[in-house]
């Protein structure tokens, strides 16, 4: 596998077993994500976007197929091993932010590094750096309920990037935000991508998916289309 490939998925299937019916959410998805790419996964509701993202983020495992992240084979990993890989290699941004209410902004952002067992000073430096990148350095001691939705999303992004992951997964980042805040978050993601972060974003908003380098279209659990908007080289020139 090329060193430039961050994510490699081959023939990924995901089945959900209900009490009466079986749902085949992903039906043989294969794709690669390259280092420094900004990929948007699009498609109508129920097409399997979020399922694909949770498998990519190792929050769930595929029913079948192979998935490599940063050359690590993920099939057969147990919950704790998946957690460790996620902690080391993935940053995750949720639509509903998922910040812990009882913790401050600083503590929320510090979480991945705390779990890695980093030293206090290193955590402090990294958190401040991440918060500066998202413009939230002035709100370190605030609790999530004391800041706006847009600010919460920026903190969630800071938490995703604080560990310097190989891949940042973003699930409907603007879904819970108004246009102004949505635009600001998108600008932030693009800036991060320009600084070298690999980003995979799930969205159904065509306005924002158009800003990605590549769009992958899903329908009924299958990749039905792929559109290269610009290459990394073009991005560098721009």
């Amino acid at each position: 596998m090329s060193n430039d490939i961050v994510v490699s998925m081959q023939d990924i299937h995901k089945k959900f077993l209900g009490t009466e019916i079986e749902t085949h959410a992903l039906q043989g998805v294969s794709l690669n994500i390259y280092k420094g790419e900004f990929v948007a996964i699009t498609g109508p509701s129920g097409c399997g976007k979020s399922t694909l993202l949770t498998i990519m983020g190792l929050l769930d495992s595929a029913s079948d197929g192979n998935y490599f992240i940063s050359d690590i084979e993920t099939r057969g990993l147990n919950v704790d091993q998946r957690t460790q890989v996620r902690n080391q290699h993935i940053g995750y941004v949720f639509q509903s932010f998922n910040l812990i209410d009882s913790m401050t902004v600083f503590e929320n952002v510090a979480l991945p590094l705390e779990h890695r067992g980093e030293k206090s000073q290193a955590i402090k430096n990294a958190v401040i750096d991440a918060l500066e990148k998202v413009g939230m350095q002035h709100r370190t001691n605030y609790k999530p309920n004391q800041i706006s939705g847009g600010q919460q999303q920026r903190v969630a992004i800071a938490r995703a990037l604080v560990g310097n992951p190989d891949l940042i997964l973003v699930d409907e980042p603007t879904g819970n935000l108004d246009t102004k805040n949505g635009d600001a978050v998108m600008k932030l993601l693009m800036d991060l991508n320009k600084q070298g972060s690999t980003i995979v974003m799930v969205t159904h908003d065509t306005r924002y998916s158009a800003l990605a380098d590549r769009q992958i279209q899903l329908l009924d659990g299958k990749v039905v289309g792929e559109k290269q908007v610009r290459s990394n080289d073009e991005k560098e020139v721009a």
């Binding site: 983020g57 704790d80 957690t83 995750y92 998922n98 979480l111 779990h115 890695r116």
Partner: peptide
């Protein structure tokens, strides 16, 4: 539950 899930998502093992 959500808080615990976030902790796990951020790299905490269930034992931790």
């Amino acid at each position: 539950t959500k808080e615990f899930s976030i902790q796990i998502c951020m790299g905490s093992s269930v034992a931790k």
